[in-house]
Structures are given as C-alpha cells and as structure tokens.
Design a protein around this nucleic acid. Structure first.
Lengths: 208, 208
DNA sequence: GTCTATAGATCGATAGAC
DNA sequence: GTCTATCGATCTATAGAC
C-alpha cells in the first residue's frame, strides 16, 4: 500500500484548505485528491471540523517547541537586543516547516490566515488552549525589547504585524505573480519573510 | 412601502457578508434578514456573484472620488511631506463611509478583507478595472514621499501595510473584544485606524 | 478498515401564476 | 415586481454489507 489513508487525507486537505479556504473545500474534493473513499474522513476524523484542527495541529506541534527553544536562547539581557532580533529568531523555525512537506511554511501561514478570518474565533481558542504558554513567552520577549511602550499599545502593534504576515501569505500567490510580472523577480517564501521582518520591526518599535 | 427591495437586499447582504464571509452567507440568509422574497435577489441582481460586486460598488463609488480629491490637494512638493501625512489624508474619506450606513467604515474594510482572501483574485480585478487610476495615484503619492526606495521594495511594503489594515478589520471583532477585556478600553474603528497609521508609516518609510 | 448507497439538509437559480 | 413551488446540484454524515 502507498501511504496511510489518514496521512493521505491530511496531506490533501491541507493543500486544498490553504488554496481555497475551509468552507469552499468539500470532503469530496479532499477524498478525490487523496484518492481515498469519501467515508474514510468521517471514519478517521469524525467530522470535517475535526479534520481542520488535525491539519493545523500537525504544524503547531512541530513549530511551537522550536519557538520555545529559540526564545530561551535569546540573550538574558533583553534590553540589549532589538525586536528585529526576536523576529529574526523566528525565521529558522518557520522555515523548517518546509522540510515537513513541500511549501510547508507557506501553507501553514495560509492556513493560519484562513483560520483567523473564516472560523470566527475557533482558531484563536485552539491556539491559546493548546499553545498559549508559547504565545505568552513570545509576547514577553518582544515586550522586554521595548520596555517604554505601554502594554495596550504593544498589543495593537503586534496584532498589526501579525496582520501583515498572515494577509501577505493568504494572498501570496497574487503577490508573487505581480512581483514576477512587474519586477521580473523570482520570489520565494523566504524572500517575502525577510522583506517583512524589517517592516514589522519598524512598525512595532516605532521610530518617531 | 418601506425601503426599496433592492436597497433592503444590499443592506442585509453587506452586514452578513462582512460578519460571516461570502461563502458562508446564503441567499436565504440574506432575503430572510431583508424580509424580502427569495426570488427577488435573482430578479434584481441576476446572481449572488453580481450581488457581491454591487455591495462593494456602493462603497467604492463614494470612497474613491474622495481619495482622488485629498491626493490632489496634497502639497505639490511631495518631497517635503512624509508617508504619514499621505496616510492620514485617507482617514477622513474612510470615516465618511460611516455616514453612509451604521459602522460603514468597519464593514467596508471587512468586506475588503473577505474579498481578498475568499474570492481568489476576483476582487483585485474588480478594483483595478473600475478604480485602477485612483490606486495608481495613491501609490505615486506614497512613492514621491520616499524617492530613495526602489519600486519593488515599496511594492512589498505597501502590501504589508494593506495586510495590517485588512486583517485587523477582518478580525476586528476579536481584537476589540480582547482590548476591552484585557485593557478595559472601549475601542472604536477610528481608534484602530489612528493606532495603525503610525505603524504603517514606520513600516513603509523604514527607520534604519 | 474500506466500500456502496443513501439519508437528510441546504444551496443557487428559475418557471410561471398573479 | 412579487410570490410559490420546485428543479437539480451540491453538501456532510451515516448505515450496513464486505
């Protein structure tokens, strides 16, 4: 036999969810692409909603422990480093997702963007209950770089930064097509991220 | 008779589209909320797809001419002003959308966010064919403030900025709820926009 | 575990009476 | 222009044979 049915379903589902969104992807789309029987999704995952969570969990379970590691290894004197350093430390963990599966990094962020706008709060709850501690540690690391900025102000800025990131990936296909057509550039996901880090760092730190 | 059927449909549709997304909103949802007959949507608009475009068009037709005006009134010596000035000049036009309909500003940006992630390129084409000249004028105004930044770099930064904006509005309900719960702040759409302008300006201009 | 067959619901769109 | 009634196509989920 080829791959396990369960894996085939997850692999097919994540591509379709990332490309078309959750609502627009039917179980028939998924099982056809995975070349498995329609009923097998409900046998293995119980429901479509549960399948969506499993697709995300595969990525979070790899990413979040890595983020914990890189944050723990940041200099103890946080005042000495900038936000850009913290954000840059997240890049290698993000890039390892592409070793999991082809275009893993891109797909993961697309799924994140879809989840935030489509599942009306479910994703946020899923992240905070399962990986909330990592999120808090990351926010603390950013805050330590910028002790002068008020809590609520930093809250807004980090969410704006996340917006840049998630939106850019959600529409990354359009963006890279334009970049290639108008500027004759071949654009990889890493290029996009490395363009984005200074943008986010400048926005979060604020220069004036 | 109360309001025209056509208007009632548009009013109901824009609320539901903004809150739940296009795919998740059925014609039955819309006609029930508008308190009109199911068949009247197809009579007046031909199809659901056409209805979506009409909902957006009502906002664009008011917003875009105003943006043309404020850009035309910017100082001729563009080198003398900053990006923040250009972005701030967009705020009054955006705010007038709330005079059109309750929460118009917020709804419009939510529709924009939904359109970008859900309609896979259709929205972009709709904007560029109908209002492309205004978009180009706006991009030029930003570029004049930052003559030292290369075309392609500015392309990335403006798209990141748009991402912050659109995503923040798409998830604005969650964001304002958190802000109110964690920081005990009452947050209006104008507060969000005014927090966002410096963030975007710092990100686009780049400080280092 | 895998399959067929189908229940049960909902969808967009339209025909045709008024 | 507005309504009822319905078509035909989808969808998720499940029952039950193998």
């Amino acid at each position: 036999m080829a791959k396990e049915t369960k894996i085939r379903i997850l692999d097919a589902a994540e591509v379709l969810f990332a490309e078309q969104g959750y609502a627009q992807t039917s179980m028939r789309n998924i099982t056809a692409r995975a070349d498995v029987n329609l009923a097998s999704v409900n046998y293995h995952f119980g429901s479509k909603k549960n399948l969506i969570q499993h697709v995300l969990k595969r990525y979070f379970d790899v990413l979040m422990p890595q983020i914990d590691s890189v944050i723990a290894e940041l200099p103890a004197q946080r005042g000495a480093i900038g936000v850009e350093t913290v954000l840059l430390s997240l890049v290698p963990p993000m890039m390892t997702l592409s070793e999991l599966r082809p275009n893993g990094t891109e797909r993961f962020v697309q799924l994140l963007g879809r989840g935030y706008t489509e599942t009306q709060g479910h994703l946020r709850r899923f992240i905070m209950t399962g990986y909330g501690a990592t999120v808090v540690r990351l926010m603390d690391a950013i805050h330590c770089c910028l002790p002068d900025i008020a809590d609520d102000e930093l809250f807004w800025r980090t969410h704006f930064a996340m917006g840049s990131f998630v939106f850019s990936m959600a529409s990354s296909q359009a963006l890279t097509e334009i970049a290639e057509a108008d500027f004759d550039q071949q654009v990889s996901i890493k290029d996009v991220i490395l363009h984005m880090v200074p943008f986010m760092a400048n926005g979060i730190a604020g220069s004036r």
